[in-house]
Design a protein around this nucleic acid. Structure first.
Length: 255
DNA sequence: CGGCATGTTTCGCC
DNA sequence: AGGCGAAACATGCC
């Protein structure tokens, strides 16, 4: 889905629904259970929260969990907080509306051509790790718990049960700034390196948030397909597959 | 037309 | 049991 940063942008837009009483819910049965979601009708929205990549709407009838897959965009009252999603559709076709939630004077919808978004009542968030906006200290603690893992550093960064909310682009940016080869086994990091990686993770998350999203980093989509060079040392980026995802890294300064 | 894409889940194998 | 890698999922875009 949009990564945790985009989910946060969606959450902020969803705050407009706090205090509203829901009057109707329409859902594509591939993305949610219409019978289950119908329990929201008549409920009042109490708060809009976020955990990792999920937006959670607390209501008087339960929690509505929104997961946006890879191409899901949230549109509130006709306003799209993210106008165009990287790797998403370039149009806003009503046929791709997979969820529509109405209140008396408001409408919220998820437009998702690829149908990977999911909407559930009372989502199980118990397996999620610390949130991507957690403090350096909390991220460091999460890293220490999984210090033994032999999977690539990038795979651990992407593991939602370790840190919830980091996606492919943020993971590449963290490795870039930390100067680590994303393929390097996480278990090869010593205690100090894990602590440093935690600090970089917290810093990168905040910087990308300030710049406007997961795509704004040095390794972002703007240069992912055209082949660019590392802004630090001029070396052409290497493009490969790590943890099952397209990955870009500098073969010189990322070790 | 072929291949690729900010993700998650499932399955087989250690 | 838990962790790891590969494949599957659905569909628009370049």
């Amino acid at each position: 889905m949009p990564e945790g940063l985009e989910a946060e942008i969606y959450r902020e837009a969803a705050v407009a629904f706090v205090g509203s009483q829901l009057t109707a819910v329409e859902v594509d049965s591939a993305c949610g259970d219409p019978a289950e979601l119908s329990m929201l009708i008549g409920a009042t929205v109490l708060a809009a929260r976020r955990q990792g990549k999920q937006v959670l709407l607390d209501t008087t009838n339960g929690v509505l969990g929104l997961h946006f897959g890879m191409t899901g965009r949230l549109i509130v009252d006709g306003q799209a907080p993210i106008d165009r999603l990287e790797y998403g559709a370039r149009r806003d076709d009503p046929r791709w509306d997979r969820l529509i939630v109405r209140a008396s004077h408001r409408t919220m919808r998820v437009n998702d051509p690829r149908r990977w978004s999911r909407y559930v009542i009372d989502p199980d968030t118990s397996k999620l790790g610390v949130d991507l906006f957690a403090s350096t200290r909390d991220i460091r603690a999460a890293f220490h718990v999984v210090a033994h893992r032999s999977a690539p550093i990038k795979a651990v960064l992407l593991d939602q049960s370790v840190i919830a909310g980091i996606g492919n682009l943020i993971a590449d940016e963290v490795c870039f700034v930390a100067g680590h080869d994303p393929r390097r086994p996480f278990s090869s990091l010593d205690r100090d390196e894990r602590a440093a990686l935690a600090a970089v993770t917290a810093k990168v998350v905040r910087r990308l948030r300030r710049l406007g999203g997961s795509h704004t980093g040095a390794t972002g989509p703007a240069i992912r397909s055209v082949g660019a060079s590392c802004p630090l040392d001029g070396t052409p980026f290497v493009r490969g597959d790590v943890a099952g995802r397209t990955t870009l890294w500098c073969p010189v300064h990322q070790r």
